[in-house]
Amino acid sequence: MEAIPPRENWPLWEVFIRARQGLDHKHAGSLHAADAQMAIENARDVYTRRNEGISIWVVESRYIHASSPAESGSFYDPANDKVYRHPGFYHLPDELKNM
């Protein structure tokens, strides 16, 4: 009955949507589509039925590489002991204005 074996089925795409001019594209979700054009059209139908976006990016999920959550401790470690990167680290007299 099924002509296309599951393996050859449409690839998975990740969808990013810009809600308004001036904002970043934000991950909205994923969907299956045969090609990029279809992915964009399906994304419009699935994720922007109520004017949620004015611009859509799609990228095949297999091209997204992610950091590993298991290593997140050591991976972000270099930033952990650098409180001096935050403005509150510096103690200055209260009379100092506009800084």
Binding site: M1, A3, I4, W10, A34, D35, M38
Partner: peptide, 19 residues
Amino acid sequence: HAEGAWVREAAAAFAAKKN
């Protein structure tokens, strides 16, 4: 699902050809 099979096939074939 069965009646939509030809649409899935055609879309896949079209995508492959474009690739």
